[in-house]
Amino acid sequence: MKDIKRRSVLNKVIPWIIPIIILIAWQVLTTTGIVAANIFPTPEKVIAGTITLIKNGQLTNNILISTKRAVIGFIIGGGIGFVLGLVNGVSRRSEIALDSTIQMVRNIPHLALMPLVIIWFGIGEEAKLFLISFGVFFPIYLNTLHGIRTIDSGLVEMGKIYGLKRRALFWNIILPGALPSILVGVRQSLGIMWLTLIVAEQLAADSGIGYMAMNAREFMQMDVIVLSIIIYAVLGKISDSAAKILELKLLRWHPNYQNN
């Protein structure tokens, strides 16, 4: 029992070791002058800048705006990718008709579309939502399609033997069997979502964390720039942790997740 508790404590402590080392190194390098203050601010200066932005409401407002953009774009692009992945996974005819076109479009770097998207939508919300949706679509589509295609055919045949009709077969065998792969696609898409948002907000926005960073660059506010980077990292970690929790809840039946 003690070993289990000790292992549980270690599992909670170990992930924090490297971030703490980075923080200590940051403090030492910036306070001793090894790294000049005009190149990288001290942690104290970043904290002071954070407090100022919280007091004037800019930080909270920009975080909420960026999070809203990310979530809406993810829902749109991820939802379309999930539906098309399911359709092409269960229908060979649909895959033949659609998959080749999707694969051709997938090879277009979505961030390279930025100039065209700005011409189409300007710097409004539509431009950012389009880019985020376009970026997150493909990992979820591919992993959904792959998950369905790699389901053990023996399980499907067994379900048919037990009298499962198409709908019951889908909900009880096909979708649960593809779920691990789908959730991998979700985690991949979450990373792409934040990456796309960073670029979109820096080039085509008048609000959000990326805009805050670009505006700070104009005035050489290094503390705000570093803070923006940290916020993106924290938001990315939170979203990935949420995806991992979702995995544990939805895949409790899976042997590989029962000991987590």
Score class of each variant (00 low, 15 high):
G89L: 00
G135M: 05
S91Q: 03
K45F: 09
W171N: 13
G89C: 01
P139T: 00
V105A: 13
G124L: 03
S100E: 11
T67F: 15
V90N: 08
Y162L: 12
I148A: 03
G159L: 05
L155Y: 14
V136R: 12
I80E: 05
F138Q: 02
E95W: 00
V46R: 02
N88D: 13
G163W: 10
I161M: 14
S91C: 08
I54L: 15
V71S: 01
P109L: 06
V105C: 07
L113T: 09
Y141K: 01
M114N: 05
A97M: 08
I118P: 15
I148T: 05
I51S: 06
I118T: 07
I148M: 01
L169E: 12
R92T: 13
I75C: 03
V156C: 10
L113Y: 02
S153V: 03
E95C: 04
W171R: 14
I140C: 05
G147P: 04
V71W: 09
G81L: 03
G85F: 00
W171L: 10
S91K: 02
M158C: 06
I132C: 07
G124E: 10
N56A: 02
I123L: 08
T144V: 03
G77L: 02
I65S: 11
R69K: 09
I63P: 07
T52F: 07
I123P: 15
V71E: 01
F82H: 07
E125D: 12
I161L: 14
Y162I: 06
I76S: 03
L84F: 12
G147E: 08
E157N: 12
V87E: 00
L53G: 08
L59C: 09
I173P: 11
R92K: 13
R149L: 02
I51A: 12
F170K: 12
I72M: 04
H110Y: 15
I76V: 12
V156A: 12
V117L: 09
I161R: 08
W120E: 06
N56Q: 13
F170V: 09
T144M: 14
I54W: 15
V46Y: 10
N88I: 01
F137L: 06
R149D: 04
I119D: 01
T144R: 10
D152A: 04
G89S: 08
I102P: 09
G77K: 00
R106A: 10
N61K: 15
G159S: 08
L155W: 11
N61Q: 14
M114S: 09
I173Y: 01
I151G: 01
L53D: 10
S133W: 05
V117W: 00
T144L: 06
G49S: 13
H146Y: 12
L86G: 14
G154Q: 10
V83F: 06
T150Y: 06
I72C: 03
A127V: 03
V90S: 07
G89D: 06
K160L: 13
I63W: 05
N143R: 11
A127R: 10
I108T: 14
G89H: 04
L84E: 08
I75Y: 07
L64T: 07
S91W: 04
L111C: 00
S94D: 06
T101Q: 05
I63D: 00
Y141G: 01
